[in-house]
């Protein structure tokens, strides 16, 4: 694969969201990811696609799995990877962001992976950077690699995305995973159901191309995929939902509720799971029905694909991929 081909297939400097990607660009990234899944199952997992490149993982919010997934992806492609965790207080959050951007830029990184607690923060930071920026999650806005890895997991198991009915259940209001998935699944011709208590459903979600439900029985009907979202501790106990036990009774995915979906419906979760809160272990650990392990594996492959696609567009790319 040469850099010129990549340029044509994925012509973006940064990956800030699914918003703005075309169907062919999404398909291209998924196809490229498929190759890396195979490579990652071999004994020799390394290539030199990113040899000489510097990748910085800048995390303003703590994350174990996304950060290690990006780290492994970069290392398998031969990049020098540095992790930076920035502790933020509410007071100096924004100040730290732009100061950090200027400082990092002076270190001449090639790829910057950023997670931040504020919607739009990664795009703001990208304006100050002269390298490729990947959004690893910004506030309640987007988490594009999660949506790509979810799509890859589904496509590998069911062979397609077009025409599927996918339920996303839980705290939709505060979820970047839900937004990126909604955008990607809509673009690829799947039908999305959003399910949650009214207090966790955002205003105007119907206008963004989803059907919205407040009960699992109605929302899961005819669904091929049931995607559960993590419910954050601070949302529980009276503020947005009255209690964990009521939430689990109404929205926690167990075998009984899963039966509302199609008989072969698959279960997904972006992790980390709250077992007994939004999902029952019997469902989460069922190898026949659960895609949760696949999602983690696909995560590394998708991030390798995205890193390669962005590196190919760097201005000083010398075509080391050969």
């Amino acid at each position: 694969m040469t850099s010129i081909e990549i340029k044509g297939a994925f012509a973006h400097r940064d990956l800030l969201g699914i918003d703005g990607l075309s169907v062919s660009e999404i398909t291209y990234l998924l196809d490229l990811s498929d190759n890396y899944v195979d490579q990652n199952r071999q004994i020799d997992k390394k290539t030199s696609v990113l040899r000489g490149r510097t990748q910085i993982n800048l995390f303003f919010e703590s994350s174990t799995r996304t950060q290690s997934s990006f780290e492994l992806a970069g290392k398998r492609l031969g990049a020098d990877v540095m992790n930076m965790a920035v502790k933020t207080s509410a007071v100096n959050k924004g100040e730290t962001l732009l100061d950090t951007a200027v400082t990092l830029n002076a270190m001449n990184p090639d790829l910057l992976v950023v997670r931040h607690g504020d919607s739009g923060a990664v795009a703001l930071l990208a304006q100050k950077m002269s390298c490729a920026v990947l959004n690893a999650g910004d506030g309640a806005h987007e988490h594009p690699t999660q949506a790509l890895l979810d799509a890859l997991s589904i496509r590998r198991r069911l062979g397609k995305l077009q025409g599927l009915r996918v339920a996303i259940c839980g705290d939709i209001t505060h979820s970047r995973v839900a937004r990126s998935n909604l955008l990607l699944l809509n673009a690829m011709g799947a039908q999305v159901h959003l399910i949650g208590p009214q207090t966790l459903l955002p205003v105007g979600a119907e206008k963004l191309g989803a059907r919205v439900f407040t009960t699992m029985r109605e929302g899961l009907e005819g669904c091929d995929i049931v995607m559960m979202l993590r419910i954050q501790n601070e949302r529980m106990e009276g503020a947005l939902i009255p209690s964990v036990r009521e939430y689990y009774r109404l929205y926690g995915l167990d075998r009984e509720k899963l039966a509302y979906a199609k008989p072969e419906a698959l279960v997904m979760h972006p992790g980390p799971m709250n077992r007994g809160v939004e999902i029952d272990s019997a469902v989460a650990d069922d190898p026949e029905r659960s895609l949760i392990r696949d999602q983690v594996e696909m995560g590394v492959a998708v991030r390798m694909a995205v890193l390669e696609a962005l590196a190919a567009n760097l201005p000083n790319n010398t075509g080391e991929a050969e």
């Binding site: 506030g139 937004r179 955002p202 105007g204 979600a205």
Partner: peptide, 9 residues
């Protein structure tokens, strides 16, 4: 509004 929802604000 739906715009706020889309922007995650």
């Amino acid at each position: 509004s739906e715009l706020a929802t889309r922007l995650g604000l």
